[in-house]
Write a protein that binds this DNA or RNA. Structure first.
Length: 268
DNA sequence: TCTGACCTGCGA
DNA sequence: TCGCAGGTCAGA
């Protein structure tokens, strides 16, 4: 499911809903989702702790409960809900947080690819690449990352150790915005193309955050509503439809086992 | 570098 | 009934 814009949308909504709340209990219905602790330890560590900060790194959410850290990756279908009464999949609610104030938060994940971790110190995520909205993400940095790689540019964008947070939807959309074919090799990109790519990454992600993320199936906001960014996509899931710039039919190909959409005329 | 596995629901 | 779906990882 969620790529950087969806995770950031969720982070902002959770901060509004439950920042500074004190946790009464965490009920774990599906122990397999907890990756590095027993269910008992996981629940006990957060008992009566206040949620003092919610951060995002790439597609990970980091909940700081007074220096006990709960880290969550939403996988393909994980969402947080304030109210589970309208959920279509109540059987797939795997975690329930209950706050002292009486508020509740539900973690739902149909495909169970999501994961949770417990850390005693702030996790550092050394295996992740540069954050697209950080000061470290500059044109020079992007150029240095790209210029000697022989891999295709779309696979480069989706590799979390290069730039962290881009997934399959936004990789296609970013390349369309930049006018670069997903088949092009990194090492063949000109300075001008890398500059276009640099702008496209920030513009596409920023605009998706502004639109509360892209809903195709599982993703919902914390309030259970659809995101709006699917209404603004230019190529993703548009195979056969005319390109909005040149009317050439959008093509679908498979790269790295993932569907990839592009305009063969606009993207060279 | 590529493929399959993980898991479930949905639409063709 | 089968293929596909927004992610990640292990193993070949």
């Amino acid at each position: 499911m969620p790529e950087l814009p969806e995770v950031e949308t969720i982070r902002r909504a959770l901060a509004e809903y439950c920042l500074n709340e004190t946790l009464e209990t965490v009920s774990v219905k599906t122990p397999a989702l907890i990756k590095n602790a027993s269910v008992d330890r996981f629940s006990n560590e957060f008992h009566h702790k206040q949620l003092v900060e919610i951060e995002r790194r790439a597609k990970f959410l980091i909940f700081n409960f007074e220096n006990r850290y709960m880290v969550c990756h939403l996988g393909m279908s994980g969402i947080f809900l304030k109210d589970a009464s309208q959920s279509r999949f109540p059987q797939h609610i795997h975690l329930i947080w209950e706050f002292k104030s009486g508020k509740r938060l539900y973690y739902q994940d149909v495909r169970k690819f999501g994961k949770f971790w417990l850390y005693d110190t702030q996790p550092d995520f050394t295996n992740l690449g540069v954050e697209p909205f950080s000061e470290h993400f500059t044109f020079e940095r992007l150029k240095a990352l790209i210029q000697h790689k022989k891999t295709g540019i779309k696979l480069f964008l989706m590799d979390q150790s290069n730039i962290a947070g881009i997934g399959n939807i936004y990789a296609s959309e970013i390349l369309f915005r930049a006018g670069i074919s997903p088949l092009k090799k990194c090492s063949d990109l000109s300075d001008r193309e890398i500059r276009s790519l640099y702008s496209a990454i920030q513009e596409i992600l920023q605009s998706a955050i502004k639109n509360f993320g892209t809903t195709y199936s599982a993703y919902r906001t914390v309030s259970g509503e659809n995101g709006q960014n699917q209404n603004f996509l230019k190529v993703y899931q548009k195979a056969g439809l005319p390109c909005h710039q040149c009317a050439t039919p959008i093509e679908k190909i498979i790269l790295g086992n993932r569907s990839t959409f592009y305009c063969p005329r606009c993207q060279k």
